[in-house]
Design a protein around this nucleic acid. Structure first.
Length: 280
DNA sequence: CGCCCTGTTGGGGA
DNA sequence: ATCCCCAACAGGGC
């Protein structure tokens, strides 16, 4: 379930478990998890290394290890971590046996879309920089930056916001949420979003991501945090998953359609154009 | 019970 | 540049 706020929630949950500690043993249970390295080689590479710190870049989770080594997890659709105190998940793909902990930290992933890349800090930096644009909550991203990107694209606004090279960390949920908050239709051609619209979108993305981080992310279905906790964001969605239900602002029925290949929800009344939205 | 559809992501091919 | 399909599994509707 990991978009940026969920990955950030996982990162924070892992800090007390991993940061500063030595990986005494690592078990890779899924042959295809670590790419393009053989599972046994990955285990050997990681064993005995100390976790200096946990970082996040977009939706990627970084274990910065000693000896200039970085392990990068991407949770894709269904990856999650379970701490020693959490119940044993049904689809454990990797176990970190960590110095001083009662049990292993387990990586779980039913669909097996998640990935783990291991490399030097220079290799990982190059890998991430080639795929990711600025951090949405960082200083490098603003209305002008987004506007300049949008005006050169003929596809939908939604497709552009989902492009990780434009801004790193947005997924299907928060794009719909931000478009609703900004009052801009997600199916609008990107090059028709105004400068003001771009400004509003940046503010909406920031507000929505920060709110989700503050309440511990959204936990869809039976996903839980590292210690089994439930995030509070799922009950705060104003657009995502609300197709066919009344708009929380105006009461009209929310539209649902397939945009950029993804299920998309918006309110035709509150998101009519890229112009300022009337407040209710 | 089976079949069909959907899905929080990203990569590759057309 | 853009779009479609795929990876592999769970859950819901019929």
């Amino acid at each position: 379930m990991p978009e940026l706020p969920e990955v950030e929630t996982v990162r924070r949950g892992l800090v007390p478990l991993l940061e500063g500690r030595v990986l005494e043993r690592v078990e890779v249970l899924d042959e295809r998890l670590v790419r393009p390295i053989a599972p046994r080689d990955a285990e050997q590479l990681l064993t005995g290394r100390r976790v200096l710190r946990l970082d996040r870049r977009g939706k990627y989770l970084l274990l910065v290890l000693d000896d200039d080594l970085v392990a990068v997890h991407h949770l894709r659709m269904t990856g999650s971590f379970a701490g020693p105190a959490a119940e044993e998940p049904r689809h454990v793909r990797l176990r970190y046996f960590v110095e001083g902990l009662a049990g292993p930290v387990r990586y779980n992933d039913p669909r097996r879309f998640g990935t783990l890349d291991i490399g030097s800090s220079a290799e990982i930096t190059a890998y991430l920089d080639s795929r990711l644009g600025p951090e949405p909550l960082g200083p490098d991203w603003n209305g002008d930056a987004l506007y300049e990107r949008l005006r050169r694209r003929s596809t939908s606004l939604k497709a552009v916001l989902l492009d990780q090279r434009v801004v790193a960390g947005l997924g299907n949920i928060y794009v719909d949420e931000a478009c609703f908050l900004a009052g801009v239709r997600p199916d609008l051609s990107a090059d028709r979003v105004s400068r003001v619209g771009a400004e509003r979108l940046v503010a909406a993305v920031r507000a929505r991501l920060q709110e989700a981080i503050d309440v511990g992310g959204s936990t869809l279905r039976d996903y839980r945090g590292v210690e089994g906790e439930v995030g509070g964001m799922q009950e705060r969605f104003v657009a995502y998953g609300r197709a066919g239900r009344p708009c929380l602002t105006c009461g009209n029925t929310m539209r649902g359609a397939r945009i950029a290949g993804r299920g998309t929800t918006w309110c035709a009344t509150c998101q009519p154009t890229n112009r300022a939205r009337k407040l209710g």
